[in-house]
Amino acid sequence: MWCHFVGGNLDQQALDIDEREISEYRGVPMCSPPQDPKLVRSHGMGVYSDTGRTVTVDGRIARVFELYGNWQSVNPPPFAVNDFASGPAVTACGADQPVPEFWSYADLLGDVSAGDWVRERIPRFGSTVSALVPDVYPTYLRLLHPAWTIRELDRDRSPVRWRILVDALGAVMHQTVAWGSMIEAGVRSGRETGEGSLWDASPTTGELPACEIVALATVLAEHTTTPDDCYFGFWEGRGFRGVPENHSRLTLPGRRHLLVRGSVCDAGRELQGFLPNIWWPADRAWFVASDVDLMSTYVGGATELANALYGEIELFEAIDSWRGARITWDCDTINPRAAGPHTHD
């Protein structure tokens, strides 16, 4: 079968594929409450989904396969074009509209000057919150990425909050609590790590779970005058394939980002299986940063926004922070320090 691929490492390639190599792929969103998995017909390591469309390539009719997401993605995106996975849904912002599809290469901005102010306010790569979020906000807070329990039979995951683990391990919850130090507190007190009984998988670095980023976008949309105009940056180190080396990037100290533009409600859309690392509305009312090395997401904004986020205790776990708070693995000065940054991954 003649196939034409769009996106990913096979972008714009036409290949003759054995029909037997086309398989059903069931992407399971890793969040709670569990969502219905999306079933697509796919081919390739990058999960290229059959769109049902055809195109003429080199005089032959080719079936179009478009990138659906990476196998390693923890949040496989819905594929709105495909009949298997499309359909109306109530979005985070309450509107009844089709499920948003993932970002494509056509969405990447060639002009990234909208991020110039971010570069001006983050002058250096450092070890504090101000190295992630511009130092222009009155209030900063930290969203703790959850740990997970996993049911062996179906691999469904349920989030485990840090506050639960702190109590069980005899640790102390505070503004710069670190995952490794919290677990180390349990080891030194004789309560062990809690792995296998309290949690099975440690928090994901670099991004909130998809369900939490959607919940966050719902709150943030109420605290900006430009909810339909928002910028999202994806760290280039994720290894996005097919993007020209000379394509415009927003260059911050130690990090370069591909930039796209949409509405606040687009925060849950993925680019090749990854969620955004930074995002902010056009009016700059707030700023969100999920650095690839951290198990926390940091938000800068107004005090009213912080209060709203603290109130959503069922949706995510928020604690106070400030622009000078340390963000490195050894930032915890209250709980015992682990031997190294990956001691209790």
Rank of each mutant, 00 (worst) to 15 (best):
L10T: 02
I17W: 12
E19L: 14
R26N: 09
V28Y: 07
S32Y: 13
P34V: 13
Q35A: 11
V40T: 09
Y48L: 11
Y48A: 07
T54D: 15
T54S: 14
V55G: 00
T56M: 09
V57A: 11
V64H: 09
Q72T: 13
V74Y: 02
V74I: 12
P77M: 00
P78G: 06
F79V: 10
A80E: 14
N82T: 10
N82S: 13
A85T: 14
S86Q: 11
A89P: 00
T91A: 13
T91H: 15
A92M: 10
D96M: 10
V99S: 11
D111L: 06
V112S: 07
S113N: 08
V118L: 00
V118I: 14
R119T: 14
I122V: 13
P123K: 05
R124Y: 13
G126D: 15
S127G: 05
V129Y: 01
S130N: 11
L132S: 01
V133W: 01
P134H: 00
D135Y: 01
V136L: 08
Y140R: 02
L141I: 12
R142Q: 15
L143D: 01
L144I: 13
I150W: 06
R151L: 13
R155W: 15
S158Q: 02
I164Y: 01
V166D: 08
V172P: 01
T176K: 09
M182N: 09
I183Q: 02
A185F: 02
R188S: 07
G190E: 02
R191N: 10
E195Y: 05
D200R: 06
P203S: 11
G206A: 05
C211Q: 07
A215S: 14
T218M: 00
V219M: 12
C230I: 12
F232C: 06
F234D: 01
G237D: 09
F240S: 02
R241Q: 11
V243F: 09
R249W: 04
P253F: 06
R255K: 10
H257P: 02
H257Y: 15
A267S: 15
A267M: 03
A267D: 05
Q272G: 04
P276W: 03
P276K: 06
I278G: 04
I278F: 04
P281T: 05
S290W: 05
D291L: 08
V292Y: 14
M295Y: 08
Y298I: 14
V299M: 04
A302W: 00
E314Q: 12
L315R: 15
F316I: 03
I319P: 06
G324I: 00
D330P: 01
C331W: 00
C331S: 15
C331H: 06
P336C: 08
G340P: 01
P341Y: 07
P341E: 11
H344G: 08
D345Y: 09
